[in-house]
Design a protein around this nucleic acid. Structure first.
Length: 568
RNA sequence: GCGCCCGUAGCUCAGCUGGAUAGAGCAAGAGACUUCUAAUCUCUAGGUCGGGGGUUCGAAUCCCUCCGGGCGUGCCA
């Protein structure tokens, strides 16, 4: 629709220039946008303002010339010159009614774009250390990353979802030692709990499970042997937990990437980490100092150079991260998106530097997800993996449900810390916007059941089948010209633009806002326009509009990752 | 100290690649169900866009500066 209006404006201006009415080179920057105030029409352009000086005409006069050449088009109801020289374009009912046809023809593919042109993108998110249960922040990033991936897919990208498992390194050792200490306690052996160990109750649970399975068998084993064994047992349990919780909220990963594989030697005897450093060295970005191996990241915009291999011979976490990102780009992604917690934002510059040094400048986008502050009826709930004082994300899901959790997590812009009140999310009231949107969908389904002659709360009715048999393709859409009907169609027309913005800005929260707007437009329509009446033509036309709204609502909820209930 | 994020209505937040009279939800007040779901709708009220400078036809938006809040700033992971 935007393209259509842009073309109309441009060709009107071009004709005016050709006819000698305006003296101006044909401008390249003719753009139309949505006016903030809907009373200003559907589309507006400031071309006249921008080029008045060049054309040596007052802006309003130039605008009048363009307006005069735009009127008469069947999709345009009115073109007005407003304010200092804006051109406001109002779409005709006919143009809006056509949107309904487009929605119904596209079905679940409504709003799909070719923006991505099939480019291969990767979204890596959650990537929680496998040393404990998912916390609420991980839940937000899961909702965010998954919805981002869904939007990008809708916008035409080929998207892969990846979870990076930090299963190597010191955290895993501490984790194993913590489980081991709890296990020994269960065996009745006096054990010293590691000073920096994980104190959460879940560690005890894991130890108990191992003890139930294997008894005291490991009590007398050498510590190193026991911990090595427990590490794998406990790791497997946590990984199972992560997969179960994520699956439970509808998030599925294509790849679970193990950090260990970066450390293991390949067929040629070198690890991926070593090969990544060798690449950087060959490109001249590596030097030795104070017994350590350094990456000259400052040359790529980092604050200072970074150590990759410490004087003691161990690789830093950053070295593994570089190898990991090299691996990603070796897999052929056109763009890699990392979703990190806010506490990692200090790493963005060095990671971007590394990616640039590896020969992929600008192909990494790091999105920072701010933290979640958990409340319960106004009281702060603490979340700490170390003290064990925490609400796990699984607990939260059990309590508020996946729909409410996902919806709440997405409602804020990514770089905004989120206050999540458990009591509020549970509340089934007007304060809870997820129900507002879902309710609109449920209401539509009730109308369709009613129109089909079924009981309005008959759950056995197949809505999609009912809709397709009930709604006639040649319904007289021209009858739809009431204010509430036009407003609903306008809102439906916006969806492709919303998908585009959400994809370009990696901002799924735009979808929740749109979903609420669309639901509001429907609720208003519902209040003002009786759908099933004894006027068969009007009923047919309105059923058509209602079904288009159902499709769009279901689609946008799908992009958010929230269900569209047929009855509430 | 330096870096990133933030400061907009009583609360939670949109609007930020400059555009028209700064918006929404909640909370507050007043109304609307013998009708396809009132988990809804309608109306009212609510603002020095943190302060100050600058850039220009035009600034919540861009630049500078100050104030306030959050996070980060390891040869940790």
């Amino acid at each position: 629709m935007r393209d259509l209006i842009t073309t109309l404006v441009r060709s009107a201006l071009e004709r005016a220039i050709k006819d000698g009415e305006v003296t101006l080179p044909v401008p390249a920057d003719v753009t139309v946008e949505r006016p903030r105030d809907p009373s200003h029409g559907d589309w507006a352009t400031n071309v006249a303002l921008r080029h008045a000086r060049e054309a040596k005409m007052p802006p309003r006069e130039l605008a009048e010339v363009i307006a005069a050449r735009m009127s008469g088009h069947p999709d345009v109801a009115a073109v007005e010159v407003a304010g200092p020289g804006f051109l406001n374009v109002r779409l005709s009912p006919h143009a809006l009614q056509r949107v309904l046809t487009e929605v119904r023809r596209s079905g679940a593919g409504y709003g799909r774009l070719t923006l991505g042109a099939g480019e291969k993108w990767q979204v890596e998110f959650v990537s929680a250390n496998p040393v404990g249960p998912m916390h609420v922040g991980h839940g937000r990033w899961a909702a965010l990353g998954d919805s981002m991936a869904r939007v990008l897919e809708h916008a035409g990208y080929a998207v892969e979802r990846e979870f990076y498992v930090n299963d190597a390194g010191v955290q895993m050792d501490i984790f194993a030692a913590s489980v081991s200490a709890r296990y020994l306690e269960l065996c009745g052996v006096d054990a010293v709990f590691p000073e920096d160990g994980y104190r959460g109750a879940y560690i005890v649970d894991i130890a108990r499970e191992i003890h139930a399975e294997e008894g005291d068998a490991w009590a007398d084993a050498p510590a190193a042997e026991r911990e090595a064994h427990f590490k794998e047992k406990a790791y497997a349990q946590v990984l199972e937990h992560l997969k179960r919780v994520l699956h439970g909220m509808g998030v599925e990963f294509d790849v679970w990437f193990s950090e260990r594989t970066l450390h293991e030697p390949g067929p040629d005897g070198t690890s991926e980490i070593e090969r990544a450093i060798a690449d950087l060295r060959a490109a001249g970005h590596i030097y030795e100092k104070d017994g350590a191996t350094w990456f000259a990241s400052a040359a790529f915009g980092d604050d200072k150079d970074r150590v990759l291999k410490k004087a003691d011979g161990a690789y830093t976490y950053f070295a593994a991260d570089i190898a990991y990102h090299k691996d990603k780009f070796d897999r052929g992604f056109d763009r890699v998106i990392d979703l990190w917690g806010a506490d990692h934002h200090g790493y963005i510059k060095r990671m971007e530097a590394a990616v640039a040094a590896l020969g992929h400048p600008g192909k990494l986008t790091v999105v920072i997800g701010q933290l979640v502050n958990l409340f319960r009826g106004g009281e702060v709930v603490r979340m700490s993996k170390r003290t064990g004082e925490m609400v796990t994300f699984e607990d939260l899901l059990d309590e508020v449900g996946a729909d409410a959790a996902r919806y709440f997590f997405l409602r804020r812009s990514t770089d905004q810390p989120l206050d999540f009140d458990i009591a509020l999310a549970k509340e089934q009231s007007a304060e809870n916007p997820v129900y507002y949107v879902q309710y609109a969908h449920a209401r539509i389904c009730a109308i369709l059941r009613k129109a089909a002659g079924a009981e309005t709360d008959d759950v056995s009715v197949d809505i999609a089948a009912t809709a397709s048999s009930l709604v006639s393709d040649d319904a007289p859409l021209a009858l739809l010209d009431a204010e509430a009907e036009l407003a609903l169609m306008r809102k439906l027309a916006e969806m492709p633009e919303v998908v585009e913005t959400a994809a370009v800005q990696l901002a799924p929260y735009k979808l929740t806002r749109y979903a609420e707007d669309l639901a509001a437009a429907f609720h208003q329509f519902y209040t003002q326009c009786r759908v099933v009446s004894d006027d068969p033509d009007l009923t047919a036309a309105r059923l058509y509009a209602v079904d288009a709204t159902r499709i769009a609502l279901k689609t946008v909820l799908g992009l958010v990752g929230v269900s569209a209930p047929e009855r509430m």
